[in-house]
């Protein structure tokens, strides 16, 4: 299935079995990050107060909780891919494997915490 032609290899059956998947996901999340981070910047600028009560009230809205959760997923996917490239450039042999596993733990652990915090606020008592 596609091992004979350059196009077939690019589609994911080269020696790495990855093709352009990493590169493409980095670009797609770059696009979604652009919109979601601009939303966050504009949202912060349009807040009047940053005290506990008003921040809780703000985050309880579905119009905030949903984009915030999407932002975490998009940004975390993007930096997981980006830091992987940085590690692959500077770390070699066994340390590279250790760093890449730590990167996965870091991303998933932090991401799960963020999503749980957003859900707890959104579904919490008023």
């Amino acid at each position: 299935m596609g091992t004979g032609t350059p196009l077939g290899r690019v589609r994911g059956l080269g020696s790495a079995k990855e093709g352009t998947h990493h590169w493409w996901r980095q670009r797609v999340t770059a696009g979604s990050n652009l919109f979601l981070m601009l939303w966050l910047v504009v949202s912060i600028l349009s807040r009047g107060s940053f005290d506990y009560a008003s921040m809780r009230l703000w985050m309880q809205s579905a119009w905030v909780a949903v984009p915030m959760a999407l932002l975490v997923i998009s940004v975390f996917t993007h930096f997981r891919l980006g830091l992987q490239v940085v590690i692959e450039d500077y770390q070699h042999n066994e340390t590279r494997v250790v760093f890449l596993i730590l990167l996965n733990f870091f991303t998933v652990g932090l991401g799960a915490t963020a999503l749980f915090a957003i859900a707890k606020i959104a579904f919490g008592a008023k």
Binding site: Y52, T113, A117, I118, K120, I121, G124
Partner: peptide
């Protein structure tokens, strides 16, 4: 970012 979210949820 996660500290901020977790602190707000806490």
């Amino acid at each position: 970012l996660v500290w901020w979210l977790a602190a707000l949820a806490g």
